[in-house]
Write a protein that binds this DNA or RNA. Structure first.
Length: 738
DNA sequence: ATAGGGTTAG
């Protein structure tokens, strides 16, 4: 190393020293500085401010990690009276980036040192520190001080830093005031202000400011401002502005920047336009891991989980290593799809790449195992953790809820509570869903008091979950009163209350609420239409059902999903329009599996329509359904027509496919004791008394004039099994005991 | 002589 040659070093001037120190830049080895540092100490040059300041800068700009401790040591070695403003500033600047709180105390020491005055550089760094430390107090104090020094606030560097500070503190109105009062602006100032709007999701302000810039100083546009505007308009309703931005960046050749392309792609993802996103993706000249992540999480978040998984595999083939974002995206999709195999593959990659330690990646993993039904694996991952954070607790609780293990979710929550873990709003929402799932009003009310205790308020998702809990417990009035008190009612909140009305037999109320929702400017989504169509089904409103079904696509651009088709089939079937239901199903182009035919078959049973019934049943046989009741219903239809060959064929098919009927089961909780009843079993110690009481009730019902519809079955045993699927339990009881 | 603003997109 030429630097270390002592004789020449001894004769070195300070200027030469600084030049040598700067030579390698940030990529120098620490050793390079240490040698020069040693010389500076020996020769006494280290007490000269310019030399020491350069050393501080050297140490603190080393990559990949600055040596802040060494920089501090150099600062401490300068005799206090020899320290100039640059000595303080050269340390303050890196601290503001890497140790913002430390930077703030360094700034205070500088102010009280009384040997130097703060310079514009000082304020630029102090504002950055306050921004990074998220300290509004320190930031506004520094701003007040800077106002006393005219040269500071008029400086474009300083005022841009101040602007950035207010943006990062989330006080965008003050940021705009700083921006408007700036004597001079450059590309940084414009993009910082727009990024501030973007962070607050002020799409229109960001877009307008960008257009203002294009008019005033088009030469200042940069890829940074383009990405900032695109990020600002990346909201569900930002598509119109987003498309205009697409035109602008295309015209300006900005798409050569992969960052701009990625932002554009993300804009389409957030607008739910995966087709357009895919188009951008496919026509991109350059891709990086962010491009892939954006597509994968985009598919995951837009409910196209299989495309997400496909994209993930495609990424792998293209030779890109997964990132934590792609893994989380693919894990979330595996959760939705129940795709355990791919999920395990992602788990393997996670371990290999060392992402497993990141809390939110691990949460996604636990969540995936929980939702794929491997609650044991989920629990294992969960229990292995040294310190479980609230996100993971919530993932586990939500996993139980998702798996239908509502009691387990409540138990886990009780454990959390006992261990003194403070729940988040998401935890509470999940536990409320568990309560709603089992109509557990008491625990639900206790959660309501906890919401008050922790001051969680009725925002998303707590308010909606609470309202749903009350409605599902049959307490529609409380559901409605929670809904009324929610500060911001989003589409989910409206969906909750609409489904509450619909499920509690208030179909008209549900439809009124739907109109009210639209008047308040809330855009209905897929779920809204499921609720509305269900309400129509309950009320037998065929024409209105069709109107809503069409409106969904025509007015809101929503593609009907299986659930919507199922609701329509249900509406037609309940109204006795079985032929229409059949034709409707056969006009559907999406894969609808077995559920639509099963609805028709069920309806044919109560409407005694054997032709459509047999037709639907045969479709189910072709599809190889594993639903035992379908075999029983079809065989009963043939039996009632005395088509014994067909009866035998269906029953043979059922045996051949190993389809078994899970016996119907119900349970009642009484004084904290759960009593279980299984069809065909007399296990309960009080069976005899219970049966006697049922016989008495059935007789009473009969005496009151209720006569159950005669069944068309020939096989009572099979029919009783099919019956246990149906809602009308009373019919079974009276048939069995009359 | 030495010290300065924004690291965007998942």
């Amino acid at each position: 190393m030429a630097v270390a040659a002592a004789p020449s070093a001894r004769r070195m001037s300070h200027t030469q020293f600084i030049e040598l120190l700067r030579r390698g830049g940030a990529s120098s080895s620490p050793r390079h500085g240490e040698v020069l540092h040693g010389w500076a100490l020996k020769s006494g040059a280290a007490s000269h401010a310019p030399v020491a300041n350069s050393l501080i800068t050297f140490y603190s700009s080393l990559l990949p990690r600055p040596l802040l401790a060494a920089a501090f040591a150099v600062f401490d070695e300068i005799p206090p009276l020899s320290r100039d403003a640059a000595s303080w500033n050269s340390l303050l600047n890196p601290l503001s980036r890497h140790r913002p709180l430390h930077a703030l105390s360094h700034f205070r020491s500088m102010l009280s040192s009384s040997t130097v005055l703060p310079s514009p550089h000082t304020f630029a760094a102090a504002f950055t520190a306050a921004a990074r430390a998220a300290s509004t107090t320190a930031g506004t104090a520094a701003h007040a001080l800077a106002c006393k020094i005219p040269s500071a606030v008029s400086n474009v560097y300083v005022s841009t830093s101040l602007l950035n500070m207010y943006c990062k503190l989330g006080i965008v109105s003050d940021a705009r005031r700083v921006f408007d009062e700036m004597p001079q602006r450059n590309a940084f100032s414009w993009s910082t202000m727009v990024a501030g709007y973007a962070a607050e999701k002020c799409s229109e302000e960001a877009f307008d400011l960008f257009r203002l810039m294009l008019g005033e100083c088009p030469y200042e546009k940069s890829e940074f401002i383009a990405t900032a505007v695109l990020s600002a308009v990346s909201v569900p309703l930002g598509l119109l502005m987003g498309v205009q931005m697409h035109g602008l960046v295309l015209k300006d050749g900005m798409l050569d920047f992969v960052s701009v392309e990625n932002s554009l792609l993300t804009m389409y993802v957030k607008a739910g336009c995966m087709g357009a996103a895919l188009h951008v993706f496919e026509s991109s000249r350059e891709r990086n891991s962010i491009t892939w992540s954006a597509m994968i999480t985009g598919y995951a978040q837009n409910g196209e989980a299989d495309s997400a998984v496909h994209m993930f595999l495609h990424m792998h083939t293209a030779g890109f290593a997964p990132t934590e974002f792609t893994l989380v995206g693919v894990l979330n999709s595996c959760s939705d799809l129940g795709a355990l195999a791919v999920g395990k593959q992602a788990h393997g990659l996670m371990v290999k790449l060392g992402f497993e330690v990141q809390m939110y990646v691990k949460s996604a993993l636990v969540d995936m195992y929980a939702k794929c039904g491997c609650i044991g694996d989920a629990k294992e991952g969960f229990d292995q953790l040294y310190e479980v954070d609230i996100v993971l607790w919530t993932a586990m609780v939500a996993g139980h809820v998702q798996n239908g293990e509502h009691e387990e979710a409540l138990t886990l929550y009780a454990r959390m509570d006992k261990e003194g873990i403070i729940p988040s709003n998401l935890t509470i929402a999940s536990v409320l869903r568990a309560c709603a799932g089992i109509a557990a009003l008491e625990p639900g009310k206790q959660l309501h008091t906890q919401i008050l205790k922790y001051g969680l308020g009725l925002g998303a998702p707590v308010g909606s979950a609470l309202s749903t809990m009350y409605s599902k417990c049959g307490n529609l009035e409380d559901g409605m009163s929670v809904f009324r008190r929610m500060p911001n009612r989003d589409v989910i909140a409206w969906n909750s209350i609409i489904s509450g009305f619909s499920q509690n037999g208030c179909g008209n109320g549900a439809l009124d609420l739907f109109e009210q929702m639209k008047m308040e400017g809330i855009v209905p989504d897929h779920i809204t239409f499921i609720n509305i169509l269900c309400a129509c089904s309950h009320m037998g409103l065929v024409d209105r059902g069709w109107d809503y079904f069409r409106s969904m696509t025509k007015d809101y651009g929503l593609t009907p999903r299986l659930d919507h088709y199922a609701c329509m089939v249900d509406i037609l079937s309940r109204a006795g329009m079985l032929k229409e239901a059949k034709d409707f199903i056969e006009s559907i182009t999406i894969d609808h599996g077995t559920c639509l035919w099963r609805i028709v078959l069920g309806a044919c049973r109560s409407l005694r329509d054997f032709n459509v019934g047999a037709y639907a049943g045969e479709r189910l046989m072709e599809l190889g359904t594993g639903d035992s009741s379908a075999y029983i219903l079809l065989s009963n239809i043939y039996a009632s027509q005395r088509k014994w060959n067909d009866v035998e064929r269906v029953r043979h098919l059922m045996r051949l496919r190993g389809v078994n009927k899970d016996p119907g089961c119900s349970w009642v909780e009484l004084n904290s004791q759960v009593h279980v009843f299984v069809v065909g079993e007399q296990q309960h110690p009080e069976s005899e008394n219970i049966n006697a009481e049922l016989r008495r009730l059935a007789k009473h019902v009969k005496d009151e004039g209720y006569h159950p519809t005669p069944k068309f079955s020939f096989n009572e045993e099979l029919d009783a099994l099919a019956e246990s699927h149906e809602e009308d339990q009373l019919e079974l009881i009276s048939a069995a005991y009359s």
